[in-house]
């Protein structure tokens, strides 16, 4: 996707990803970046050539025409809203029927984990509220808060 802006070599792409996602992104290793680029090249979405005047043999990657189409299509399509893509949801639903877990204990444990995630998120050094990583973090925080509220609802319903 980032190649749509301009051709770049692998390290530049990694840096750009970090500029966009800040600490939300798990640390990337160079291997992942290059494996992905190799796969995209195999699928003819990306093409590469040696950087001019670079003795170390850096390769510059660029989008192909079909890569651009693919990128545009991905960008314009609304992201699917995941409804059941939640492991805790599955655990809660299955704890009773399998007799293997106490739903209330699951809720307590999950609540602790979610509070901890929210705490970790808020203790990030702040990039400044006008940055994209800060905006994305706010989104994650709202998701976590919704989750905590939902855990309260689960607890209430289970009590009754």
């Amino acid at each position: 996707m980032l190649l749509a802006a301009r051709p770049a070599h692998g390290y530049e792409l990694k840096t750009e990803l970090e500029r966009h996602f800040g600490g939300l992104l798990p640390a990337l290793n160079d291997g992942q970046v290059y494996t992905t680029l190799a796969r995209l090249e195999r699928d003819e979405l990306v093409e590469s050539h040696d950087a001019a005047g670079d003795a170390r043999g850096k390769r510059i990657y660029a989008l192909t025409a079909s890569g651009r189409r693919e990128a545009l299509q991905w960008l314009r399509a609304p992201a699917p809203e995941a409804k059941l893509k939640d492991e805790f949801f599955l655990k809660l639903a299955l704890s009773a029927s399998t007799g293997m877990g106490d739903a209330m204990a699951l809720i307590d444990a999950q609540r602790h984990a979610t509070l901890q995630s929210l705490r970790d998120l808020d203790s990030h050094p702040r990039d400044g509220d006008d940055t994209v990583p800060a905006l994305l973090r706010e989104g994650v925080a709202l998701h976590l808060q919704a989750r905590l509220r939902w855990l309260d609802v689960c607890e209430e319903r289970l009590e009754n």
């Binding site: 840096t15 750009e16 970090e18 500029r19 966009h20 800040g22 600490g23 640390a27 901890q116 705490r119 970790d120 203790s123 990030h124 050094p125 990039d127 400044g128 006008d130 940055t131 994209v132 990583p133 800060a134 905006l135």
Partner: peptide
Amino acid sequence: AATGTRQRSSSSSRAGDGSPVRI
């Protein structure tokens, strides 16, 4: 658990490559 600035420490060593993208 107390959380320090550990998540960031790894990327700050790579800092200088670019500041965060602005909204």
